[in-house]
Amino acid sequence: MKIVLAPDSYKNSLTAKQVAESMQKGLEKVLPEAEYVQVPMADGGEGTVQSLVDAKKGQILTETVTDPLGKETQAHYGLIDDGKVAVIEMAEASGIQYINKTTANPYITTTYGTGELIKAAIAHGARTIIIGLGGSATNDGGAGMAQALGAQLLDKDQQQLLYGGEDLINLDRIDTSKMLPELAETKIVIASDVTSPLTGVFGASYVFGKQKGADEHMIKVLDRALTHYSEVIKRDLGRDVAKIEGAGAAGGLGAGLLAFTNATIHSGVEIVVEYTELKEKLKGADYVFTGEGQIDFQTKFGKTPFGVAQATKSVDPKIKVIGIAGSVGDKISELYPTGIDAIFSCVPGVEDLNTAIADTDKNLQQVCENIGRLIR
């Protein structure tokens, strides 16, 4: 019997690799003779770097970069495939964890640090860079990222724009002549499941601005600034990014990457499926165990268990897919037609969140042992 263990991380508790290990320990208690294949997964958000580094036996590096508020911070990124491929989560340098209710201000927050991570990865020899978009504190359209890579975003006095989304309204012209030369031979793979365009009522400012500290007036100002920014990009760079699906991800960083680099947008979990070679590892499997902190009807919109189920059924519809979560939410019956055959919660009873998080390893082992007994 072959069992593939392909879970996402459980937020604030276990990494994807640790989840897979817990699952295997529980199953081995009753199915010791089975062949187990661990494939730590992610969907492009938090945990993507760790999952791909674990799956590909890569390395994690630390870089001193600029946080969204312009201060120094330490951020991590991964190198896989003998350093040829880098994996970056933009939130590491430009994430919402760097701001609070007092400091949140998308007028000034910047993606400059994300650009510094890209620059560091290129300096280490990476020529393919996977960038997970999500959890940003920014609304600058990736302007800071471009500036870190050498782009000149100039106002009418030919001065470089200030950090943040507000000053984009003053953009007069873009000069890319001093951008990092290696960018021309670097492939950027954007991992995101956000479909919002850069501008408009469904764009970055209107959909995500409030959670980054923008009030109704600021949202309108930021959207006007991004609209102007996209018009200058179209004029000076010849790229029309305003209405591309996903351009509004991470406060418009998607648009910035599409405008200033050789970037393409893909589903996060599909990228992880590809780079972990999950489909190859699924061949000959009898069961697949997947999961994440919560499984509910939203899981079908590109979350890891959905992506794993889709990949599994494409390899062999007979392979059974079992999802395990800390919390099982609403309308999970909608997931069964997507390829997930059964869904379980690993929480054994009523307990507070902190206890449930602390006991995740033990609880996962217990539920997997019980599922293993049913299989046997």
Results as ranks from 00 to 15, higher is better:
residue 6 A to N: 02
residue 11 K to W: 10
residue 20 A to W: 00
residue 21 E to W: 03
residue 21 E to M: 13
residue 21 E to K: 13
residue 21 E to Q: 15
residue 22 S to W: 02
residue 27 L to E: 00
residue 27 L to P: 01
residue 29 K to L: 02
residue 31 L to R: 00
residue 33 E to S: 02
residue 35 E to V: 08
residue 37 V to G: 04
residue 38 Q to D: 04
residue 39 V to D: 01
residue 45 G to S: 12
residue 46 E to D: 14
residue 48 T to W: 03
residue 49 V to L: 12
residue 55 A to H: 02
residue 56 K to S: 13
residue 57 K to S: 12
residue 60 I to P: 06
residue 61 L to C: 12
residue 65 V to G: 03
residue 65 V to D: 02
residue 71 K to C: 11
residue 74 Q to K: 11
residue 74 Q to A: 13
residue 75 A to G: 06
residue 80 I to M: 10
residue 83 G to K: 06
residue 85 V to S: 09
residue 86 A to Y: 01
residue 86 A to I: 04
residue 90 M to G: 05
residue 91 A to Y: 02
residue 101 K to R: 12
residue 108 I to G: 01
residue 110 T to S: 14
residue 111 T to C: 06
residue 112 Y to G: 03
residue 113 G to A: 11
residue 114 T to A: 08
residue 117 L to P: 01
residue 122 I to T: 06
residue 123 A to I: 14
residue 124 H to I: 08
residue 125 G to D: 07
residue 126 A to T: 10
residue 127 R to S: 14
residue 129 I to G: 01
residue 143 A to V: 14
residue 144 G to T: 09
residue 146 A to G: 04
residue 151 A to V: 06
residue 153 L to K: 02
residue 154 L to Q: 04
residue 160 Q to S: 07
residue 162 L to R: 15
residue 162 L to W: 10
residue 167 D to E: 11
residue 168 L to H: 05
residue 171 L to S: 04
residue 175 D to T: 07
residue 176 T to A: 14
residue 177 S to N: 12
residue 180 L to C: 07
residue 185 E to L: 13
residue 187 K to R: 14
residue 187 K to D: 08
residue 191 A to G: 09
residue 192 S to C: 11
residue 194 V to T: 03
residue 199 T to C: 14
residue 199 T to E: 13
residue 206 Y to W: 15
residue 208 F to N: 03
residue 209 G to Y: 03
residue 214 A to P: 00
residue 218 M to A: 14
residue 219 I to Y: 00
residue 220 K to Q: 13
residue 235 R to S: 14
residue 237 L to Y: 05
residue 241 V to L: 11
residue 255 A to G: 09
residue 257 L to V: 07
residue 257 L to R: 01
residue 267 S to L: 09
residue 268 G to Y: 04
residue 268 G to L: 09
residue 275 Y to D: 05
residue 275 Y to E: 12
residue 276 T to D: 04
residue 277 E to T: 12
residue 277 E to Y: 15
residue 278 L to Y: 05
residue 279 K to E: 15
residue 283 K to L: 11
residue 284 G to H: 10
residue 284 G to A: 14
residue 291 G to T: 08
residue 292 E to D: 13
residue 294 Q to L: 13
residue 298 Q to G: 08
residue 299 T to M: 05
residue 299 T to E: 05
residue 300 K to E: 06
residue 305 P to R: 03
residue 308 V to W: 01
residue 310 Q to I: 12
residue 314 S to P: 02
residue 315 V to E: 06
residue 325 A to H: 02
residue 325 A to I: 08
residue 327 S to Y: 10
residue 331 K to D: 11
residue 332 I to A: 05
residue 336 Y to H: 15
residue 342 A to Y: 06
residue 345 S to D: 07
residue 345 S to E: 10
residue 348 P to Y: 10
residue 348 P to M: 13
residue 348 P to D: 15
residue 350 V to F: 12
residue 351 E to W: 10
residue 352 D to W: 09
residue 353 L to P: 00
residue 355 T to I: 15
residue 359 D to E: 15
residue 362 K to H: 12
residue 366 Q to F: 08
residue 369 E to D: 07
